[in-house]
Computed example of a mutant assay.
Amino acid sequence: MSPHVSQVHRSPVHGFSKTTVEVIRLIEGIGVEGDAHCGVTVQHRSRVKANPSTPNMRQVHLIHEELFDDLRAVGHDVHPGDLGENITTHGLDLLGLPVGTRLLIGEAIVVVTGLRNPCRQINDFQAGLLKQVLRTQDDGQVVQLAGVMGIVARSGAVTAGDRIKVELPAEPHHPLTAI
């Protein structure tokens, strides 16, 4: 099956998890309408504290649904929306995409800006979960599995079942890093 949206989520308050809804509306240059992280400048509380005028490169959070299967396999009861993503995808290697990848989703376009940098709040949600989404390999390299962030390049509605078309940027491709 081709890559598609399995669920969409939003929350008007700065909490950890987001509520699953039928449709979200992405607004170009701003984010998910009605979501606490929507805005031209950074909306994540820790980042606002550091510099409130920083451009919002984290307007949309996407997680691959397959992550939840992996987490359940090691004993964590985690479901779409629980980790605060706006779009849960299926059949797409989000973490393997290069910076600048355009995702055509429903009517909207999201440009991938980087990896979600998971924080300690994940352990507040479920003890031990952070080490499952932020792992250190034997060679010391840190692997971040908590999804990707993006900006909205074209407004539009996104619903469960929408296909996702991937447009890679021009080479050379640059791997995603935490933002």
Rank of each mutant, 00 (worst) to 15 (best):
S2F: 04
S2A: 13
H4S: 13
S6N: 08
S6F: 03
S11P: 03
V13E: 15
H14G: 08
F16Y: 10
V21H: 01
V23M: 14
I27Q: 14
I27K: 15
I30Q: 15
I30L: 15
V32G: 02
V40L: 14
V40A: 15
V42S: 01
Q43F: 01
R45A: 11
K49C: 04
N51Y: 06
P52T: 05
S53W: 05
T54E: 15
T54N: 11
R58M: 07
Q59A: 07
Q59N: 12
H61C: 09
L62N: 02
H64G: 10
L71D: 01
R72V: 04
R72Y: 04
A73L: 09
V78L: 05
H79L: 12
G81Q: 01
D82F: 03
N86I: 03
N86R: 07
H90A: 13
G91K: 00
L95Q: 13
G96P: 04
P98Y: 05
P98T: 11
V99R: 15
T101A: 06
R102D: 08
I109S: 07
V112D: 12
T113G: 06
R116D: 02
P118L: 09
C119G: 02
C119N: 03
R120G: 06
Q121G: 06
I122Q: 11
N123E: 14
N123I: 05
D124A: 08
L129P: 00
L130P: 00
D138T: 06
D139Y: 05
G140P: 06
V143A: 10
V143Q: 13
Q144F: 07
Q144Y: 10
V148A: 10
I151V: 14
V152F: 00
A153S: 10
S155Y: 01
G156L: 02
A157G: 07
V158N: 00
V158Q: 00
V158E: 00
A160H: 00
A160D: 03
A160C: 06
G161P: 01
D162C: 09
I164T: 01
L168T: 06
P169M: 12
A170D: 14
P175H: 06
L176R: 11
T177G: 12
T177K: 15
